[in-house]
Amino acid sequence: KKVLATKVLGTVKWFNVRNGYGFINRNDTKEDVFVHQTAIKKNNPRKYLRSVGDGETVEFDVVEGEKGAEAANVTGPDGVPVEGSR
């Protein structure tokens, strides 16, 4: 997949743990970017399912997906594990 941007910060708009996807709002362009649970690189080690929490700040790369921009290599800021869904 073509990389459109790297090390982008954003805020998780919503994430559905059961369906394994959601959207992140980019801090720079204010665009919403699709995020799938497989894109989460560093999950909260205390959680079994990969997820990001609503309102959580995350860092990610933006790649060209089949339906437009999507997140890849999702971590917390500066590469720490994500907090995950509460």
Results as ranks from 00 to 15, higher is better:
24 I>E: 03
44 N>M: 12
16 N>G: 02
37 Q>S: 14
8 V>T: 04
66 E>H: 09
62 V>A: 01
72 A>R: 10
13 K>M: 06
77 P>F: 14
71 A>G: 02
86 R>F: 08
37 Q>W: 15
18 R>W: 08
24 I>M: 03
47 K>I: 08
11 T>R: 10
49 L>S: 14
84 G>I: 10
10 G>C: 00
46 R>T: 12
31 E>V: 05
19 N>H: 11
9 L>A: 12
12 V>F: 09
62 V>L: 07
48 Y>R: 15
28 D>L: 00
80 V>C: 13
19 N>Q: 15
66 E>M: 09
68 G>Y: 07
52 V>W: 12
57 T>S: 09
31 E>Y: 00
64 E>I: 13
53 G>Y: 14
36 H>T: 07
29 T>L: 02
10 G>Q: 04
40 I>M: 07
85 S>T: 13
29 T>K: 04
64 E>V: 12
77 P>D: 06
65 G>V: 01
7 K>D: 06
70 E>W: 05
42 K>P: 10
70 E>M: 11
20 G>Q: 06
50 R>W: 10
41 K>V: 14
25 N>F: 06
62 V>N: 02
53 G>F: 14
62 V>H: 04
36 H>P: 06
3 V>M: 07
72 A>L: 08
35 V>I: 09
44 N>W: 11
74 V>Q: 01
49 L>K: 15
64 E>W: 11
76 G>P: 12
29 T>F: 01
82 V>E: 11
82 V>D: 12
3 V>T: 08
13 K>V: 10
77 P>R: 11
22 G>K: 04
56 E>S: 10
4 L>Q: 06
20 G>T: 02
58 V>S: 01
79 G>Q: 11
83 E>I: 14
80 V>M: 14
17 V>M: 11
15 F>C: 00
67 K>F: 08
59 E>P: 00
3 V>R: 05
1 K>F: 06
65 G>L: 00
68 G>P: 05
76 G>Q: 14
58 V>D: 02
55 G>W: 07
46 R>V: 10
65 G>A: 05
18 R>P: 05
60 F>P: 00
31 E>I: 03
30 K>Q: 09
68 G>L: 01
41 K>S: 11
60 F>E: 06
16 N>W: 03
9 L>G: 07
21 Y>K: 00
75 T>A: 07
73 N>I: 02
18 R>A: 09
36 H>S: 08
16 N>R: 03
47 K>Y: 10
20 G>V: 06
78 D>R: 13
8 V>L: 05
38 T>G: 08
71 A>N: 01
37 Q>T: 11
47 K>M: 11
58 V>I: 07
38 T>L: 06
57 T>A: 09
3 V>C: 05
10 G>Y: 00
18 R>T: 09
84 G>M: 11
32 D>F: 00
73 N>P: 04
42 K>I: 15
51 S>Q: 10
75 T>I: 09
70 E>H: 06
73 N>C: 05
57 T>I: 15
58 V>K: 03
83 E>L: 14
73 N>G: 04
69 A>E: 09
19 N>E: 12
26 R>W: 00
61 D>C: 00
20 G>F: 06
34 F>G: 05
68 G>K: 02
37 Q>V: 15
28 D>E: 02
43 N>E: 10
70 E>I: 09
56 E>M: 14
33 V>M: 01
52 V>M: 10
66 E>W: 08
